[in-house]
Design a protein around this nucleic acid. Structure first.
Length: 490
RNA sequence: GGGUCGGUAGCUCAGCGGUAGAGCAGCGGCCUUUUAAGCCGUUGGUCCAGGGUUCAAAUCCCUGCCGACCCA
């Protein structure tokens, strides 16, 4: 990145030449009165009259030199518009400078809008100023930028070169906005809770450690939002949500980034069933508002649809029924030894089942490896074994299970939801089991809060990154996170 | 952590033992309604890094770095 090459040297020489002429190629201020794409659209729609004067600004993305006249394209977030510069209109000196503008420079242009012979809405330049001289060449003209490493490390180049990438991130922003709108519309309160925690709770995951100098103690980056939001239920904030970053010190993959964005929402007097309705309504709302459809098509590079997700139908089915579909009707009636034998021999899960796995983990592997990846269409998997979920309440109909769901779409878990545990005594027992005897890992402050009384409540979490993958047709989490984690370059 | 693939000009890539290549971009020239403008000319390289084999290495071998995918 500290490299120099002839293209950079040329641009620096142009910069020096401009400065020698008394031109400042990094102007402090230029105020456009309309966006580039906006001007074009309004002209096409007849809202901007032929010959109207406009001031536009943007990045120069292409130029077509005609000798004594020149066409350039200017681009801003609203889109692209063509600018037409003539030597006789700008004058010899200014036109000479105009001709030597580089692709990627930012300029401001004042002129009149008109239509060229080929029908292109264009701005006939009357004057222009250089707003920011680009000292490096842009990566691509029409191939786009392909190098994944450059795309992720220098995402700004990806956004410049690949319009479809920019579209994904603009839509991600819209998705988050609509999530907020949805919850605000239902009377939820949005809050912010600590990211640095003395005891990282609410999930089973490896945390990142950090250190506070003045307090002289260790902190952990949060792995979940849950325990603080429940404190707020205790505090009387009956409908509460937070959208925030979680940090998990685990492997990176196409579906995992060390920091990822989570939504959690809790509603007093709700339960897992009302929260299923909430998740379904939320995702329908977001898809309809952002994408204008409930039928999501994932397309490959050739534009062919290879996967369709239909958000108009949401299946609700128990964990056990799904396991039976894949592993046999009598799966839960045979002995644990027989289940393990079948999983390893018949279902060929030997590589996924450790010798130390308990019986429920054997079934868990069947679900995770054979069921979950097949759940492309929206499916609420309900009534998970109680061993899997320490923070939920037992199901009265089947006390070996808890009142929870996992909403799976696109072959991955998008959202878990529970009838939240509010019995402080049972909660303590479950957390103690989970902590495995490490007393200092128990969040005593949380347990004290529960002892003060938490209303019965339903809660959900939604992985925003995975939701975006599903809605935006991206198969890698790195393509919905602007700056995904990569190993630092030496 | 293991396996597979990849790293060559600013970008996209070819070359796979015998002088470092193409298209586009850049630079110069012609052209005052073009739009992947066109035509003519032309510059540009630590072939990821280091070691080895060889008369000769971008190319074969080893090690390392970075990335993608698959698996754990």
């Amino acid at each position: 990145m500290d490299d120099t090459n002839s293209l950079i040297e040329q641009r620096r020489a142009k910069l020096a030449a401009l400065q020698e002429r008394g031109i400042n190629p990094f102007m402090n201020k230029f105020t456009p009165d309309i966006g580039c794409g906006e001007a074009r659209a309004k002209f096409e729609a007849g809202e901007l009259a032929d010959g109207a004067t406009v001031a536009i600004a943007g990045r120069l993305t292409a130029h077509r030199d005609m000798g004594k006249s020149q066409f350039i394209d200017l681009k801003d977030v609203s889109g692209r518009v063509q600018v037409y510069a003539q030597k006789q209109a700008l004058g010899d000196d200014a036109f000479e400078i105009f001709k030597h503008l580089d692709i990627a420079d930012f300029i401001g242009v004042k002129g009149t809008i008109f239509r060229t012979r080929t029908g292109e809405p264009s701005i006939k330049a009357e004057s222009f100023v250089i707003l920011s001289k680009a000292l490096r060449p842009p990566p691509a003209k029409w191939h786009g930028l392909e190098d994944t490493e450059v795309r992720y490390r220098q995402r700004y180049l990806d956004l410049i070169a690949n319009d479809d990438v920019k579209d994904v991130f603009l839509k991600r922003s819209a998705i988050v906005r609509e999530i907020r709108n949805f919850f605000h519309g239902r009377g939820y309160v949005e809050v912010e809770t600590p990211m640095m925690q003395a005891i990282p709770g609410g999930a089973a995951a490896q945390p990142f450690k950090t250190w506070h100098n003045a307090l002289g103690c260790e902190f952990f980056m949060r792995i979940a939002l849950e325990l603080y939001l429940k404190r707020l239920l205790v505090g009387g904030v009956d409908k509460v949500f937070e959208i925030g970053r979680n940090f998990r010190n685990e492997g990176l993959s196409r579906r995992h980034n060390p920091e990822f964005t989570m939504l959690e929402a809790y509603e007093a007097y709700g339960d897992y069933a009302t929260m299923m309705d909430t998740v379904e309504s939320l995702i329908r709302h977001v898809a309809q508002k952002v994408l204008g459809t409930l039928v999501i098509e994932h397309k490959n590079a050739q534009g062919e649809v290879y996967k369709t997700i239909d958000l108009t139908h949401w299946r609700r089915v128990s964990y056990k029924d799904l396991v039976r579909e894949k592993a046999g009707e009598d799966w839960f009636r045979v002995t644990p030894e027989e289940r393990r034998r079948r999983a390893v021999e018949d279902l060929k899960l030997g590589g996924d089942i450790a010798a130390a796995y308990e019986d429920f983990e054997v079934t868990g592997a069947v679900f995770e490896k054979l069921v979950e990846p097949t759940l492309i269409q929206p499916t609420f998997v309900t009534h998970l074994p109680k061993e899997l979920v320490p923070l939920a309440k037992l199901s009265p109909e089947d006390p070996t299970t808890v009142e929870v769901f996992e909403c799976c779409i696109n072959g991955q878990e998008i959202s878990p939801g529970y009838t939240e545990q509010n019995n402080p005594i049972e909660q303590r027992e479950r957390l103690e089991q989970q902590a495995g005897g490490e007393q200092q890992k128990l969040d005593e402050d949380f347990l004290v809060a529960l002892e003060h009384g938490m209303p019965p409540a339903g809660g959900i979490g939604i992985g925003i990154d995975r939701l975006c993958m599903m809605l935006l047709g991206q198969e890698s989490i790195r393509d919905v996170i602007l700056f995904p984690q990569l190993k630092p370059k030496a």
